[in-house]
């Protein structure tokens, strides 16, 4: 696919007003292989020129950034002020919010959903608009900007994102328990997840070699030390893997599952299929056969679990459990209302 790289808001508006045909918003490109394939030939719309930190109010713990800003650059700038954007995910900030890779519910932390205070955005017809505010609290008007989170850039393009920041924890410690069998891992995970102050990050990873529980305790030094000691947590390396890769021919299903339904979910899937579960409820499951995936997607609604394919063949990515018909109707209506010509794909 060819790539369009507007360098200013007016250039982007002109580009969109020229009826450019289908466009796919592209951030750092780190998640393209997890996106559903486009149904029509499309060009990339690259907003890497919109990469500034336009405002960083350290005392107010808010900032305004361009969507093309790499996460690593923002993190570096925040570190100098002892602040952080407390959610997982790399790439560009626009890509992070548009794909919401770890989902809206997190344990012990915040998610893109809670951190996006407002934004300036552009519709596919070049109309510039704003929603929300720069302050940490506002209920003026409808929160149209929240539709951006997880929309994969299919409703509108972000120009500026107003973000809530948090103080960096004064201390933190990573922990890891390896070689657990599944019942022991689930018990440990459940115990940690239900702490009054749960770990800032928590993950259960099942492989053919057993299960690993890993996470991060954050807070005051005394709290971190006491929690590690009380739960006999051994220090380990930081978590670096947040997603499962698919081996050739396999595919990865991603979804949300309440903790109480994980045993039932795993009972429906092949024994020892690689499984990754974040503390907030987002899971990934790697499956070897498409028939297995299809069967699972058909049965997951019985557990009230939503899921879709995020890694695998082009023709399969994006397939998922059926959404509520009313929800589909509203989603289609919003797409038509905000992008009637289907420019953002």
């Amino acid at each position: 696919m060819s790539t369009l790289r507007p360098t200013s808001t007016s250039e982007l508006a002109e580009l969109l007003q020229s009826k450019p045909g289908p466009l796919r918003l592209r951030g750092g490109g780190s998640r393209l292989e997890r996106m559903p394939a486009t149904v029509a030939p499309a060009r990339f719309l690259d907003l890497s020129a919109f990469a500034g930190i336009e405002r960083l109010d350290a005392q107010d713990q808010t900032c305004t950034v361009g969507p093309g800003l790499p996460r690593a650059e923002l993190d570096a700038a925040l570190l100098a002020h002892r602040l952080e954007l407390p959610c997982l995910g790399g790439g560009t900030i626009g890509g992070l919010f548009a794909t919401d890779p770890i989902g809206p519910a997190t344990v012990g932390g915040a998610s893109p959903r809670t951190l996006l205070l407002g934004m300036t955005a552009m519709l596919a017809d070049g109309t510039r608009f704003q929603s929300g505010a720069r302050v940490v609290k506002s209920v003026a008007g409808f929160d149209v900007h929240k539709l951006f989170v997880g929309s994969r850039g299919t409703l509108f393009a972000g120009l500026q994102l107003h973000l809530r920041l948090k103080p960096r924890p004064r201390a933190q410690a990573w922990f890891r328990r390896e070689g657990l069998d599944l019942p022991a891992a689930l018990e440990c995970f459940s115990m940690l997840r239900s702490l009054v102050v749960p770990p800032a990050e928590l993950q259960l990873h099942r492989t053919a070699n057993g299960c690993t529980i890993a996470g991060r305790i954050a807070g005051r030094d005394s709290f971190v030390r006491a929690t590690m000691r009380a739960h006999e947590l051994r220090e380990g390396p930081p978590i670096t893997m947040h997603h499962l890769d698919a081996s050739p021919g396999a595919e990865v299903v991603q979804g949300n599952v309440p903790g109480s339904r994980v045993p039932a979910l795993l009972a429906m899937s092949p024994a020892n299929a690689p499984f990754l579960w974040h503390g907030g409820g987002r899971f990934e499951l790697s499956l070897e056969a498409t028939t297995t995936t299809d069967k699972l997607l058909r049965t997951l609604p019985e557990l009230q679990v939503d899921a879709c394919i995020v890694r695998g063949d082009d023709s399969r990515r994006g397939l998922g459990t059926p959404l509520d018909p009313g929800q589909q109707h509203l989603a289609a209506g919003l797409k038509h209302a905000l992008d009637p010509h289907g420019i953002f794909v």
Binding site: P104, A105, V149, L155, G255, C308, T321, A331
Partner: peptide, 13 residues
């Protein structure tokens, strides 16, 4: 749903 306000393939309605 009880697992979260947005399905991974849905909008945050």
């Amino acid at each position: 749903s009880p697992a979260g306000p947005r399905a991974p393939h849905g909008l945050d309605l």
